[in-house]
C-alpha cells in the first residue's frame, strides 16, 4: 500500500503528544510499519508544534514534506492555515475552530486571520471544521480537544475498527482519565 501521511499540528501544550501516541499505537497494533516524528523542547512553550505520523508497508523518512500529507489534524484554526501547504491535492484538514492568539496578535503587530478557513475552502481543500473545545467540555474537560479530534480522524481511517482506538485509550491514559477520554473520542467519532 501507499504510505499514508497524517500531520498533527497545534499550539504547544494542547496535547499533541497524547494524540500521536494513541495514533501510533493503533497503527502498530494494526500491523503497519509506522514512523512518528515530533520535536520536543523550546517550540513546545506555546509555540507552533507539528507531529508527523506515517504508516504503510515500509516507511523510510520520518517526516512529511510540502504537498504530501493526506490528513492534517489541526488543534487550532491558524495552525491549520500555517501547515495547509503540506496537504496533498486530495487531502483533508480536520480543524478545531478554536482561536488562540499568537504573541504578534496579542501585542497588536498582526491581526488574527479569522476568515482563514473560507480561504482554504476556496482553494478546493476539504475542510472539516469541528468545535472540538465545546465537545471536549461536553465530555468533561477542555483538555480532551486532542481526543475529540482523534475521534474525528478515526472516521476517515475505516480500516481501523473503533474498538482498536478505544483499547488504545484504555491502555495509554491514566485510569481516572479513561472515561472522559472515551466520551471525548465518541463525540468526535459520532459527529456528522
Amino acid at each position: 500500500m501507499k504510505t499514508v501521511n497524517v500531520m498533527i499540528v497545534g499550539v504547544g501544550g494542547q496535547g499533541s503528544l497524547l494524540a500521536s501516541k494513541l495514533l501510533g499505537k493503533v497503527l502498530v497494533d494494526a500491523g503497519y510499519d509506522v514512523k512518528v516524528s515530533e520535536v520536543h523542547g523550546m517550540s513546545q512553550r506555546g509555540g507552533s508544534v507539528v507531529t508527523y505520523v506515517r504508516f504503510g508497508d515500509r516507511v523510510a523518512s520520518p517526516i512529511i514534506d510540502l504537498g504530501e500529507s493526506d490528513f492534517i489534524l489541526s488543534f487550532e484554526k491558524l495552525e491549520a492555515a500555517r501547515y495547509a501547504e503540506y496537504l496533498s491535492p486530495n487531502g483533508k484538514i480536520i480543524v478545531n475552530t478554536q482561536e488562540i492568539d499568537p504573541m504578534p496578535v496579542i501585542v497588536g503587530k498582526a491581526v488574527y486571520p479569522s476568515h482563514v478557513l473560507n480561504e482554504l475552502e476556496s482553494k478546493d481543500v476539504t475542510v472539516d471544521a469541528v468545535d472540538a473545545l465545546s465537545l471536549a467540555e461536553k465530555a468533561g474537560t477542555a483538555k480532551a480537544v486532542n481526543v475529540v479530534l482523534l475521534g474525528r480522524l478515526a472516521r476517515s481511517l475505516p480500516a481501523i475498527p473503533k474498538e482498536a482506538w478505544q483499547d488504545a485509550i484504555k491502555s495509554s491514559v491514566k485510569p481516572k482519565f479513561v472515561e472522559v477520554n472515551l466520551r471525548a473520542f465518541d463525540l468526535g467519532y459520532a459527529l456528522d
Binding site: Q44, E68, E85, P113, E119
Partner: peptide
C-alpha cells in the same frame, strides 16, 4: 509535489514563556 499556497500572511507563533 503540487501544494496549496495561501496569499494572506500567517502570523508567526514563536515559543513564549508560559
Amino acid at each position: 509535489k503540487p501544494h496549496v499556497v495561501l496569499e494572506d500572511p500567517i502570523p508567526a507563533r514563536p515559543p513564549m514563556m508560559c
